[in-house]
């Protein structure tokens, strides 16, 4: 593989990995509070359509991002209410959210007199820096050839990591996810922590969705994000609930998605491998990673929050 082809693959992996970082870090924060939200796919799609619509209507890219964040958070509030206040099964509620969000996004893309579907975005995220700085070998494009949201994803992953392990709020969050009864006895408001972080998770999923429709493939189509939402849920486990590791996990999967195109350009014998087979690669990788990580003794060091997906009743005896 020559150098420029490797560079292309790495750059593409960063692009494809960026929405996964947003969604994965969001889901990590949600799950750290003890709430499992399987609706990431739905929230990402709603973020994607809402962000695209806002930018399509106003031409303002940043408004699109803001609307996407709010849309994702709004959808997640349904899950928060159902799972925290009403204490319904989080699996059922999350799956319902995924199906609902998928259908709603598709509907919104086709609704109205001038539907979004098939239209290109009026504005697109472009690399922030231009000129000679991006021409430094290797680190030039890697560090300076990215758009704003890529830098934001790095900041969010680093910020979430600091928040989780070095702030009082982060400590409360971890405690609520591990043992809500003990956290409450220590004076932590369990419901508030859980609501807050389900909403943050939804907001970040919405942002991840918008990255697809405003940067990666800035045209509205029915299925703009593939299975990114489902992969993000797997990445949470792969990164063992640590935001820092989510970056590497996301890029690994970004690369896996890109490899099929890279192999095509390499010519014989690589291009003979059926592309449908290669398209499976990220999912096969996800399954293998899960098996390796959750089997045997390793599972104990994984660090899944102990109270994950368990509703909390205070006066239970």
């Amino acid at each position: 593989m020559n150098e420029s082809l490797l560079m292309l693959t790495v750059m593409a992996a960063i692009g494809l990995g960026t929405p996964l970082i947003f969604a994965t870090v969001g889901e990590i924060l949600t799950e750290r509070s003890g709430i499992l939200n399987l609706g990431v796919q739905g929230m990402m799609l709603i973020g994607a359509v809402a962000g695209f619509w806002a930018t399509f209507t106003t031409g303002n890219l940043f408004l699109g991002v803001v609307i996407a964040i709010f849309a994702g958070a709004a959808l997640s509030s349904i899950h928060a209410f159902l799972s925290i206040t009403l204490r319904v099964s989080q699996i059922v509620s999350g799956l319902a959210l995924a199906i609902f969000g998928t259908g709603l996004a598709s509907f919104l893309g086709r609704a109205g007199g001038n539907p979004l579907v098939g239209n290109p975005s009026r504005a697109v995220f472009e690399p922030v820096f231009t000129g000679s700085i991006t021409e430094i070998p290797l680190i030039g494009p890697l560090l300076f050839g990215q758009d704003l949201l890529v830098y934001l994803s790095w900041a969010i992953a680093a910020g979430a990591s600091y928040y989780l392990f070095h702030t009082r709020m982060g400590l409360s969050l971890r405690a609520v996810g591990e043992d809500p009864a003990s956290a409450e006895s220590a004076g932590v408001n369990v419901s508030r922590i859980r609501y807050t972080h389900v909403l943050i998770g939804g907001a970040l999923a919405g942002l991840g969705g918008a990255y697809f429709s405003l940067a990666l493939t800035p045209t509205w189509q029915d299925d703009p994000i593939g299975a990114a939402g489902w992969i993000a849920i797997a990445l949470v486990i792969l990164s063992s609930w640590r935001p820092g590791r989510a970056v590497f996990a996301a890029y690994l999967f970004g690369a896996a998605e890109r490899v099929q195109f890279t192999l095509q350009t390499l010519g014989e014998p690589w291009s003979d491998i059926p592309s449908t087979l290669l398209a499976m690669l990220p999912f096969v990788l996800a399954i293998i990673a899960m098996i390796v990580l959750t089997s045997g003794k390793r599972a104990r060091y994984l660090g899944a929050p102990e109270a994950l997906a368990i509703p909390y009743f205070r006066e239970q005896r």
């Binding site: 709020m169 400590l171 409360s172 971890r174 591990e178 043992d179 003990s182 006895s185 220590a186 004076g187």
Partner: peptide, 29 residues
């Protein structure tokens, strides 16, 4: 209150359990 079933978060350290929910205003731990 010290409950019969202790209210300590078992995956956290002793110090983290001390800090948990403490009304100190600081953001940083």
């Amino acid at each position: 209150m010290v409950y019969q079933h202790f209210r300590l978060v078992s995956n956290l350290t002793v110090a983290e359990n001390f800090a948990l929910g403490h009304p100190d205003t600081g953001v940083r731990l």
